[in-house]
């Protein structure tokens, strides 16, 4: 269990991240706000309470790896990495400008500390994460690898190719978290391609699967720290709400692409601040 005091801190970090993400979207016209807000709590739980990482040693061979396979959540990741100390906050001032590395998707690792792989095209992150997890076995290292996928991303066949290989290889140091916010870019994910029962799908592919509330820091901590002893890779189906944290963005898929106006930004920040 996470101590109550620590829980409060994690929630504060998540709230602060949401304010920054929405402010940045308004300022830099960066879309995918709904997708970013649905995974903020997962990112905070991973970076501030799960991963064994040291921002001062971003290339430490023994570090845990986190891959944002749903690369369009980069606007959230960029804020979290700055808050974690991988680069100074001032670096984000260039966001969205010509020549900046901060845009809509993560750049390659050489261009930004804390990034493990450039993603954006969907269905790429899990195979890469699997390669990293297998490399730990070959090189006799003890790190874990987490790949965060979108539910829409589970449309991609490469996700299931990787799922089968991970199960066949019994890769126990690999975890998938699916940010199951029930929407993809242009429709309900369930209506586009049949996704449910999602946890059972992963189980059928040979994984240990668990369903949690992806906004609950206690449940997130529980899965991140649970000892994985039976040799199977782990899939966490994190039920989330797209646009989580701002009443008029929640579960409204227009915020996949929409940019908040000044009035909307103020209203969103007000809600998040009074929620403190």
């Amino acid at each position: 269990m996470v101590p109550e005091l620590r829980l409060g801190t994690l929630r504060d970090i998540a709230r602060e991240a949401r304010i920054r993400i929405i402010t940045n979207s308004h300022k830099t016209h960066t879309p995918h706000l709904g997708s970013c807000l649905s995974c903020v709590d997962i990112l905070v739980a991973a970076y501030f309470n799960g991963l064994r990482i040291d921002p001062k040693k971003p290339k430490d061979p023994e570090r845990d790896r986190f891959i944002l396979s749903k690369g369009h959540g980069a606007a959230a990741l960029f804020q979290i990495l700055a808050m974690k100390g991988f680069y100074p906050e001032s670096a984000l001032e260039s966001y969205g400008q010509n020549g900046s590395v901060f845009a809509e998707h993560p750049p390659i690792p050489d261009h930004l500390p804390g990034i493990e792989a450039a993603t954006g095209s969907l269905g790429h992150g899990l195979p890469i994460a699997l390669g990293m997890a297998l490399a730990a076995r070959i090189r006799k290292q003890r790190y874990n690898v987490i790949a965060l996928l979108g539910d829409g991303e589970c449309n991609e066949g490469s996700v299931w190719e990787a799922a089968m290989m991970a199960a066949a290889q019994r890769v126990a140091n690999l975890m998938v978290i699916v940010d199951f916010n029930k929407w993809q870019a242009t429709g309900r994910s369930e209506e586009v391609l049949e996704l449910t029962p999602l946890a059972d799908k992963w189980r059928a592919f040979g994984w240990n699967a668990r369903e949690i509330d992806g906004h609950d820091m206690v449940q997130l901590a529980d899965v991140l720290f649970k000892k994985n002893s039976d040799g199977k890779p782990v899939a966490v189906i994190a039920h989330t709400v797209k646009g989580k944290g701002v009443s008029f963005m929640e579960d409204d898929n227009n915020w996949h692409y929409r940019i908040p106006s000044k009035e909307e930004l103020d209203a969103a920040c007000h809600e998040l601040e009074i929620g403190a």
């Binding site: 690792p109 890469i128 699997l130 490399a135 070959i138 990787a162």
Partner: peptide, 8 residues
């Protein structure tokens, strides 16, 4: 993708 992850 696995090869890329290994090379990384």
């Amino acid at each position: 993708g696995v090869a890329a992850g290994m090379a990384l």
